[in-house]
């Protein structure tokens, strides 16, 4: 497999998993994936094989992020591999004016998503910024989910701008007592047993990373984390 021009060796189990996931039109549960890929095994064993395949895929280097740049260019770059013209992080960072002091501004991030993802795919201005209040309401949640679903069904990723504060909810793997501004690519939604979940890719994964590259999170929690910032759809 090649990722961004680099040849990456992945295990047979991870190859089957990748191929299966690539053919799905909707998010699928772990239970379903495990049952399809390992039908001959008991549930627990199939689940263990899935965990192992996922973990090996993550550690194979398929999602290693260029260590030089920050989450804004990383999210744009990841988004271009979902849709658009693939671009590396230095190019995205240079275009958006990302710097070590202030990261990437919301307006620059919107411009970056537009330039590298929206315009190449649709030929017109797809992306806009939506601010989320410090204390989101249920209307803000509904609007976010509607917008997210619209983009997902169009095959377009959403860039979410998280504002995590000490003692409040955080993205998976982010420490509780830190204030963190962070962009993530949001590319999935699932209503599981009546609860809305959001699927996102976190670029902050590295050598021995405690930050998972992909996570499901409760949608309300996710919107609370966006509170005071917003998203680009």
């Amino acid at each position: 497999m090649r990722v961004r021009g680099r040849r990456i060796a992945i295990s047979r189990g991870s190859q089957r998993l990748l191929a299966f996931l690539a053919l799905q039109e909707r998010p699928v549960s772990r239970v379903h994936v495990a049952g399809v890929l390992w039908p001959e095994l008991p549930d627990e064993r199939a689940a263990a094989n899935l965990r192992s395949a996922l973990w090996r895929l993550r550690r194979s280097g398929a999602h290693l992020v260029d260590a030089v740049y920050y989450c804004g260019p990383a999210t744009v770059s990841e988004s271009t591999y979902t849709e658009g013209v693939p671009v590396d992080q230095p190019t995205a960072g240079s275009y958006m004016g990302t710097n070590s002091t202030d990261g990437t501004s919301a307006s620059s991030m919107t411009s970056g998503m537009q330039h590298f993802v929206g315009y190449p795919v649709y030929g017109w201005y797809w992306y806009v910024w939506v601010g989320v209040p410090y204390y989101p309401s249920s209307n803000d949640l509904s609007t976010f989910l509607q917008n997210l679903q619209t983009d997902i069904y169009s095959g377009m990723p959403v860039a979410s701008d998280a504002y995590e504060v000490a003692g409040g909810p955080h993205l998976n793997g982010h420490p509780t007592d830190q204030t963190i501004f962070h962009y993530v690519e949001t590319a999935g939604w699932w209503n599981y047993n009546g609860e809305d979940l959001v699927y996102y890719a976190d670029s902050a994964t590295t050598l021995w990373s405690s930050v998972p590259p992909y996570s499901w999170l409760d949608a309300w929690t996710f919107v609370v984390i966006l509170g005071g910032r917003g998203y680009i759809w």
């Binding site: 920050y70 989450c71 202030d102 420490p175 963190i180 930050v211």
Partner: peptide
């Protein structure tokens, strides 16, 4: 101590 609000690393 986290020294940047934009970079966990």
């Amino acid at each position: 101590q986290g020294d940047s609000q934009y970079n966990l690393g």
